[in-house]
């Protein structure tokens, strides 16, 4: 199996046509899966391939999460396992091309200024995330973007919950450093971090 044991242990055998609900719910995870894939790979084409492969495997799977089980966690676990297997085949990490990867980002809105502000926010966060090691990017996106619990993050990432906690703390500290200069350099920037000082006595 390609996904974590916890998810597969909770899975059930798919039952024919009535799994339409499963497929619809799976499609509802698309944006999150794509964002996670992009965070891991930092390459749009790779992210799209990862997402495609995730859905192909999910829909072809004989055992799937039931209606009350954690479909999102199962899908994210499939994706992260595909990524890790793929990465083993690539010696260097995929070259970062986050600018090119923003082509499919939310950009529809009635107010150009609001769109611009949102873009600035996203750009700043994405740029800051890009500076983090992959293990940190992974936990930040799973927790702060996707809202998984520590235990769920641990299952997806394949590490203890305590490791998730420490990685999150370190990742946020690094993010704060990466974001702070931007906040001070651009008064209009929406990323005003509070308080503005270092945070340690």
């Amino acid at each position: 199996m390609l996904w974590g044991r916890k998810w597969s242990a909770e899975a059930r055998v798919a039952e024919g046509p009535e799994d339409e609900g499963f497929r619809a719910a799976a499609v509802g995870c698309l944006d999150g899966l794509y964002g996670f894939a992009l965070t891991l790979s930092r390459d749009r084409a790779t992210a799209e391939d990862l997402v495609q492969e995730t859905y192909v495997r999910a829909f072809a799977a004989h055992r799937r999460p039931g209606p009350d089980e954690n479909l999102r966690g199962w899908l994210f676990t499939i994706l992260v396992n595909i990524w890790r297997n793929e990465r083993k085949r690539r010696r260097p990490e995929a070259v970062a091309d986050l600018e090119a990867a923003t082509g499919g980002l939310p950009s529809q809105g009635p107010d150009p200024h609001a769109v611009l502000d949102q873009r600035e926010q996203r750009e700043a966060i994405r740029s800051a995330l890009e500076t983090l090691p992959e293990a940190f990017r992974e936990v930040v996106v799973l927790r702060c973007v996707e809202g998984f619990s520590y235990q769920e993050v641990a299952s997806i990432a394949g590490c203890p919950a305590g490791t998730v906690m420490s990685r999150l703390a370190r990742a946020r500290a690094l993010l704060r450093l990466a974001l702070a200069p931007r906040a001070s350099a651009a008064p209009r920037a929406p990323l005003t971090l509070v308080p503005g000082r270092g945070g340690r006595s």
Binding site: L30, D31, L33, Y34, G35, L38, T39, R44, E48, V51, G103, G104, L105, P106, Q118, Q121, R122, A124, I125, R126, V140, V141, C144, V145, A169, R172, A173, L175, R176, L179, P190, L191, T192, L193, V194, P195, R197, G198, G199
Partner: peptide, 20 residues
Amino acid sequence: EAERAVVEAIRRALPLHQAP
């Protein structure tokens, strides 16, 4: 508060990505 500010900054920037 420093860490909370980072969490809030991420939250305000959501959604970070949308599938093409």
